[in-house]
Write a protein that binds this DNA or RNA. Structure first.
Lengths: 220, 220, 220, 220
DNA sequence: TATGAATGAGCGTTCATTCAT
DNA sequence: AATGAATGAACGCTCATTCAT
């Protein structure tokens, strides 16, 4: 299951621990211990803990973006504009494909996105933006084309409302899954991550297509 | 509002630092230093750093729930069922009121919710659930009454999609605000937090009211 | 012998180890171990290892400068200008007094001066210059008054020739002492540090009073 | 001069870094990185970091001693005894010649001498003494012949006062040069290392020829 | 002959907490 | 009630060296 080689063992162990505990809470000693490698190996192969986190990020995002691009190519030679639901399904499908190649570690990827938006993480943010922004633009343009008409800034914020739904739900999937099971024990809900991604599509889609803004509420 | 007393100074300083840096990243030294109190004061007054975090949580959530209850009382003697948009506006309004009483620290509250959903945070989660769950149920029932008809589990997840939008957007407000300003410099966008809360209402509302689910995508 | 209190124990242990091994070669674990205090005590009391080195520096230099000033005050109300030999004797005497208050640790002080002149030690250098430069100026002026007439830059370099003799001899006193004993075993030379300081006076004095410069040698 | 071969590249890189930072402060990674060779190459070719330092030492001292011997041969067939100033000029000249063959790395040589006099460096000291002591004796005898009459031990110490001036001034030349420039900006002093060596001659000479010792100062 | 990978030991520092007063 | 001092544990990281090829 684990690939060959020390760097690969490290990345695999790190993914598990990052998913279980978060980045700051996971120590290099825990990682190297679980990977059965020397304590210094992380610094040797990745330069620093930060470098390892970036390596983990790349391992996820690169195939995700590739898969997204591949799926979008279906539309490139036709006049058909993809519907919002279809675009979101492409996105969810890409996430699931990446997950199938990185057993059970979608939460790590989502935590990475959350991390990138935190203060004091400009470095990671700039790294990701510099590396992947351009490759995402076509996809986002298509999203916008089937969304309700709106200003640039409104689109910016709605995209992040969407992103928030995804990162919160997936990075805390384990907790939410437990909560759901303990509340609705009767139904023996087989809530798997795939199902949750599926549930998200009509909700997010409706959010992007919602028209009109409520009037600003008076100052309080 | 004023900060008479050591415990109060500590809580105020902690709020600021938690908002700026997150909980794990904020040290008790930073807190006591900013509060101009002794290093040992946190352990003395709150038992531990965790105890302080709970104290901060209570300071936010109690007035929030109170405000929410007050607003809901308007409907209690009538047959009028509040519309989803109105319920969300009540929620946003309550958030803004709490904010006005705890200058600029809505992000802390949102980070607290995120924290409560993390693994290894059962203690905080149980604390919040045990303390506030019952007082939220009426509000949530009203939400459900104006949402699209759906199963319990679907409602559970949609609520958390909503929660994700709110926590992600508000806890990372500073970063998102910067990103928006650097992208759309021309418009001199005066994006304030109030405006963002306002923008969220129709989006979240549409999400909860979205009908029909896409067919499950085939296994991959 | 050792003063009371943790900081004092640390400084005493540090002095010994710095003298034996140098600054970089001495670890905080060695220091805290010899001082029988907790490993974290250095950072608690001095902020960092660098802070401890500065504290050691101050403990030496402050009384040295004070002693120097006291001795120089003898000349302040008279018209007598002190002779170069007398000035050097004042200096040596001040060094010995400081040594008598900090048992056997003149080598540490000399190593400190050497350290301050190294690259990448601007911080220490600036610290010392900012703190003590002005208090040394009168003494240096008197030195110059009884030296051979020379330009500013020539005086600057001759002062440092002198400083080099002192730092090299004293910071390596232990090694030199051993070498001397092994070479001249017959004489059972009782070379003590006081004697060496004494030997230096006529040599340094002659150097400062040497007149005329040799012609520049041709380019090679 | 050219750097064909891995060992040669290593030595050249090491010289530069030793001059800039000192021996302990320079890591084998820095050296191999600047030399563009494998990290293990130092241990492979020189056994250890210490072995490399010895190799650097030899590269300097052997030609220095050779040059010194050559110059001294001028006097071998005559009855003329060289004057102290001439001997010092021969020494300075030899240093400059070695420097011209090892671009700008006189400070390294001086640091090497300082290092050899430190505690815990018996190995290096013994290596140098065993290799070069005998070849220096004639030169030192000539020095003594034109110095003031003195006992063996007095001569031993005066030699090291001289050595201290040289090592301190040259190994810290960069710092001293900066200090001088910042103090005497007006004169646009073209202080080069050659000039400093030149300035040293009359000072050191006078020191060696100084007669009479001051009376021992009373115990304090 | 030469190297990329790996290692054990140790580094200075920081942490939340506790102790003695 | 409150605090300055102190602590044990752990942190990420770097070191010169060695190993397997």
């Amino acid at each position: 299951m684990s690939s060959k080689g020390t760097p690969s063992s490290i990345v695999n162990a790190a993914e598990e621990l990052f998913a279980e505990q978060g980045f700051a809470e996971t120590t290099v000693r825990q990682i190297t211990s679980r990977a059965n490698v020397n304590l210094a190996a992380i610094n040797y192969h990745f330069g620093s803990k930060k470098g390892l986190i970036q390596a983990v990020a790349e391992k996820f995002i690169t195939p995700l973006i590739n898969e997204l691009s591949n799926q979008m190519d279906c539309y490139v030679d036709t006049d058909v504009k993809p519907a919002l639901d279809d675009l979101l399904e492409i996105l969810m499908r890409a996430l699931l494909i990446v997950r199938s190649e990185n057993q059970n570690t979608l939460p790590v990827f989502m935590r990475l996105l959350e991390l990138a938006y935190m203060n004091n993480q400009e470095e990671l943010r700039d790294f990701l933006i510099g590396r992947y922004k351009s490759r995402l633009e076509h996809f986002l343009d298509c999203i916008r084309d089937d969304s309700a008409p709106m200003e640039d800034d409104e689109f910016f914020w709605r995209l992040h409302f969407m992103l928030g739904s995804m990162t919160f739900t997936l990075s805390n999937f384990q907790t939410l899954h437990s909560l759901e099971k303990s509340r609705f024990t009767s139904k023996q809900s087989e809530t798997e991550m795939e199902q949750i991604l599926h549930r998200m599509i009509p909700v997010l889609s409706a959010g992007m297509q919602a028209r009109g803004e409520k009037l600003y509420f008076s100052k309080i």
